[in-house]
Amino acid sequence: MVLPLLKLGALTLKAVSKPVANMLKRQAGYAPKFRQFMISIAQANHRITTKIQRRIYGHATDVKIRPLDEEKAVQAAVDLIVELFVFTVAGAALIFEVQRSSRSEAKREEAHRQKLEALKQRNEDLATEIELLRHELEELEQLAKRQGLSGIFKFEQANTEWGNLARSS
């Protein structure tokens, strides 16, 4: 269930990112300040990635890195911004899902805790009721002993007496 939704979300992000990229390209063509901003982003990204690649491959990093031409820089900046947009939306969706799952789990745990608490309370109530019944039974036995009716509450003694009477008859 999650995998198809994930794929659908990725396709939706890609579909949304294309118009965003086209809009950014048009804005870079119309507004010189925005174009310069895009070029500076692309040049900085180009320098950083080139230095990282050179370090990874063990090449010298103190060499001068040639800047990108303006059109490639604008295209690279647009691609970078679109990728950041897609990454940000995907990250936000992931964070939202984790928080939703966390809230759902917390609700389940709270319901479980409440059920456990109710069971504990019921157990305590039953224990109290048993104790009260035990106390009442003791009072009845003492009352019966005082009134001479002790045989009524002792079934074993009464059964043996009835059994003896039945045998003797």
Rank of each mutant, 00 (worst) to 15 (best):
Q142L: 05
I56W: 03
K33M: 09
L6Y: 07
T88G: 09
F153G: 11
Q53V: 09
E71C: 01
R167Q: 13
S40N: 15
E156H: 08
V82H: 01
V78W: 05
L132M: 05
A93E: 04
F96K: 08
L8I: 12
Q157D: 11
P19W: 06
L94C: 08
S150I: 05
R108W: 00
A92I: 12
I152R: 00
E83S: 15
A73Y: 00
E136C: 06
R100S: 03
F155S: 04
E129K: 15
L143V: 00
T160F: 13
E141S: 10
T49W: 07
W162G: 00
R66A: 10
G91T: 10
G29A: 15
T49E: 11
E156V: 12
E109Q: 13
S169I: 10
A111L: 04
L11Y: 14
Q142I: 07
E109P: 01
K120G: 13
T50F: 00
R103A: 10
S40C: 09
N159W: 08
E97S: 06
N45D: 13
E110H: 05
G163N: 15
K107A: 12
M1K: 06
R47N: 13
Q53A: 15
D125C: 01
L132S: 04
L84V: 01
N159H: 01
E156K: 11
F96N: 03
I81W: 08
E124P: 02
E141N: 10
I81D: 03
N159L: 07
F87N: 14
E117N: 11
A42S: 09
A44R: 13
K154W: 08
A73G: 08
D69K: 02
Q157A: 12
F155K: 08
L143N: 07
V89T: 11
L133K: 09
G151T: 02
E161A: 14
Q114A: 15
Q114P: 01
K33E: 14
I130N: 10
R35V: 05
A77C: 10
Q121F: 06
I52E: 04
L133H: 05
G29N: 15
K115G: 05
A158S: 13
M38G: 14
L24Y: 05
K33R: 11
K14V: 05
A76K: 12
R108F: 01
L133G: 02
N22R: 10
G91R: 06
T50L: 00
F37N: 14
E161M: 13
K25V: 13
L133Q: 08
Q75M: 07
Q121D: 12
K18H: 11
L119I: 02
E70A: 14
L6R: 03
E129V: 09
G9T: 00
G151P: 03
N164H: 11
S102F: 07
K7Y: 04
G151A: 05
I41R: 12
E124G: 02
E136P: 06
Q157E: 15
R100V: 03
L133I: 00
D62R: 04
V82A: 13
L84K: 03
V89M: 13
